Amino acid sequence: MLALTRKVGERIVIGDNIVVTVASIKGDNIRITIEAPKEIKIFRGEIYDAIAAENKQAVVPNIISELDRLKAWQIKK
């Protein structure tokens, strides 16, 4: 992890094509801008966590049904 101190207008460059700029600071809030290619997905942390949890939950029932099918196939043999 890298921790940096930046002032308004200062940038952080990630790779060759992502630029994060501090746009404004008001009290405890910091507004940033992110310039990146459209094919790179950018999510707020809480949204990303919710998507990951939903994806993980969606996989579990499929795994169980696959196991049930395998068990049924093994019994028929």
Rank of each mutant, 00 (worst) to 15 (best):
residue 62 N to V: 12
residue 47 I to W: 07
residue 7 K to P: 00
residue 47 I to H: 11
residue 55 N to S: 07
residue 9 G to N: 01
residue 20 V to A: 01
residue 67 L to N: 14
residue 39 E to H: 13
residue 7 K to E: 14
residue 8 V to R: 13
residue 16 D to M: 03
residue 13 V to G: 03
residue 52 A to G: 05
residue 37 P to A: 02
residue 69 R to G: 15
residue 11 R to L: 09
residue 76 K to A: 06
residue 57 Q to N: 14
residue 24 S to Y: 07
residue 39 E to S: 12
residue 57 Q to P: 06
residue 30 I to D: 07
residue 53 A to S: 10
residue 32 I to G: 02
residue 20 V to G: 00
residue 24 S to M: 09
residue 28 D to M: 09
residue 43 F to P: 00
residue 73 W to A: 12
residue 73 W to H: 13
residue 65 S to G: 10
residue 28 D to Y: 08
residue 14 I to R: 07
residue 43 F to A: 03
residue 64 I to D: 13
residue 16 D to N: 04
residue 2 L to T: 05
residue 70 L to F: 09
residue 38 K to C: 03
residue 30 I to W: 09
residue 70 L to R: 12
residue 34 I to A: 02
residue 38 K to E: 09
residue 61 P to V: 05
residue 60 V to S: 12
residue 18 I to T: 04
residue 20 V to D: 01
residue 56 K to A: 15
residue 51 I to P: 00
residue 36 A to M: 04
residue 48 Y to G: 02
residue 12 I to T: 01
residue 58 A to V: 07
residue 12 I to D: 00
residue 68 D to Y: 11
residue 13 V to N: 09
residue 39 E to K: 10
residue 20 V to Q: 00
residue 27 G to A: 10
residue 14 I to S: 05
residue 27 G to V: 05
residue 27 G to H: 08
residue 67 L to E: 15
residue 39 E to C: 06
residue 44 R to W: 07
residue 74 Q to N: 08
residue 36 A to D: 01
residue 63 I to Y: 13
residue 24 S to W: 11
residue 74 Q to Y: 12
residue 46 E to F: 03
residue 60 V to Y: 15
residue 63 I to C: 08
residue 47 I to V: 14
residue 55 N to P: 02
residue 10 E to V: 03
residue 10 E to W: 02
residue 8 V to I: 14
residue 65 S to H: 13
residue 76 K to V: 05
residue 40 I to Y: 08
residue 63 I to K: 14
residue 71 K to F: 11
residue 21 T to R: 03
residue 68 D to K: 15
residue 58 A to P: 07
residue 46 E to L: 07
residue 37 P to W: 01
